[in-house]
């Protein structure tokens, strides 16, 4: 009988201690969670503000003024866009000229 009581007493103490520890752990995690959630919400708001600001700062009107002042960029002209085949043709022509100059290829007129 005494042994049973003893086990029971020890058991309930252990159980109580574990229970309290679980409780405190849960509540500390919970408060951490709240802090993190608050931070996430805050950061989301900050991100929104930053996105709005980025959109504001990249207004084409503003960029154009800044570009005119500091970069001197110009709108792309139609003759600045070329076909890839055109590029290949120019490169090949250039290679041929180099080859002729270095004497690898003898041109028709002979030299």
């Amino acid at each position: 009988m005494k042994l049973v009581t003893f086990i029971f007493v020890i058991g309930s103490i252990l159980f109580g201690v574990v229970l309290f520890q679980v409780k405190y752990r849960v509540s500390s995690l919970e408060s951490q969670l709240q802090v993190v959630e608050k931070k996430i919400a805050d950061n989301q708001e900050i991100i929104k503000v930053c996105q709005a600001e980025w959109s504001y700062l990249t207004q084409p009107d503003r960029l154009q003024k800044l570009s005119d002042q500091f970069l001197g960029l110009k709108p792309l002209l139609h003759n600045q866009v070329v076909d890839l085949y055109e590029v290949m043709r120019v490169v090949e022509e250039e290679n041929l000229v180099q080859a002729v100059l270095q004497g690898h290829v003898v041109s028709g007129e002979g030299s």
Binding site: L19, V22, K23, V26, E30, L33, Q34, E37
Partner: peptide
């Protein structure tokens, strides 16, 4: 109270 109450509480705070 120990195990379940924090949830109610957190909902209220959140």
């Amino acid at each position: 109270l120990m195990l379940l109450s924090p949830e109610d509480e957190s909902e209220f705070v959140n």
